[in-house]
Design a protein around this nucleic acid. Structure first.
Length: 257
DNA sequence: CCAGACGTTGTT
DNA sequence: GTCTGG
DNA sequence: CCAGACGTTGTT
DNA sequence: GTCTGG
């Protein structure tokens, strides 16, 4: 499901849309964000909503490191967590209770597995509510995420690593043809509860996860340029062809299957 | 997620 | 095929 | 008690 | 870290 995305919205615009405190970090327009890279994350620290950078791929507390200090040697990075089991799943349980976050994005990619043809999913214009009304084509949205802090016990002199993961759920009608999972996209009215700013019990958090959907999203087949993670430029979102665009489905409800 | 590498001994 | 790297 | 696993996606 | 298995 969600193993590559884009976030080209400037940090100052993210700061405004999420209402975060403090100076936002420098972050260039990213057309091709890949696992293990640092990404912008909205989370609550000292009771304030802040925008910071964290490594994408959650490293559970207590993880081992290799001789080079890399965490979880030989194991895949935890870039996703299943929303259905996240409250009890070992590495995520703690983070689910205390360290929920939002991962800002303005598009994400899914591949047709048989041809490795990439598809770009993003908001289309004319479909409020965006964070501030109709944000237009490619407007910012938020993945539901969790974050964790990991201290390499072999190197107590090195600062702890903050890392994050993106929750997944059943696909919408729009995504189902490509994959049986999709990222959890939270509407603005769910942000405060998910971040823990409004008190919420487990039932309310489940309701927030159930509010996920992709109403107003569109699917564009794009160039294979994006397949190589080293390519990180506007060519990544070039439509693959003018001859076979994916028509928007008027019946698409944005609800999950 | 996809792309790309996938090995050794020894010397610098 | 399988593992690593980004 | 300690040791060991803990996860995802995808593919089969 | 936390949970399970022995």
């Amino acid at each position: 499901m969600c193993g590559r995305y884009k976030v080209t919205t400037p940090p100052e615009a993210m700061r405004q849309l999420f209402g975060t405190h403090g100076v936002p970090p420098n972050f260039p327009p990213r057309y091709n964000v890949a696992p293990t890279q640092d990404v912008p994350v909205v989370f609550v620290e000292h009771e304030q909503r802040v925008l910071g950078l964290m490594r994408w791929g959650l490293v559970p507390a207590g993880s081992e490191s290799d001789a080079q200090g890399k965490p979880r040697p030989g194991r895949p990075p935890l870039i996703n967590a299943r929303s259905e089991t996240v409250s009890s799943a070992g590495p995520f349980r703690n983070a689910y209770r205390a360290r929920r976050c939002l991962v800002p994005a303005d598009g994400y990619y899914e591949w047709d597995k048989t041809t490795t043809t990439p598809h770009l999913f993003r908001r289309r214009s004319g479909f409020p509510p965006a964070p501030a009304g109709d944000g237009g084509e490619g407007a910012l949205f938020a993945f539901a995420g969790l974050w964790e802090e990991w201290q390499d016990l072999k190197r107590p002199d090195i600062a702890p690593l903050r890392s994050c993961t993106v929750l997944t759920t059943r696909p919408s009608e729009l995504v189902a043809p490509l994959h049986d999972r999709m990222p959890v996209i939270l509407p603005p009215e769910s942000w405060a509860v998910w971040l823990g700013e409004a008190k919420a019990d487990h039932t309310e958090l489940q309701a927030v996860l159930a509010s996920a959907g992709d109403t107003g999203f569109t699917d564009t087949t794009v160039s294979k340029h994006v397949n190589a993670h080293g390519n990180d430029d506007p060519a990544c979102i070039e439509p693959a062809s003018d001859l076979a665009p994916i028509p928007p489905s008027p019946r698409d409800s944005g609800r999950l299957l």
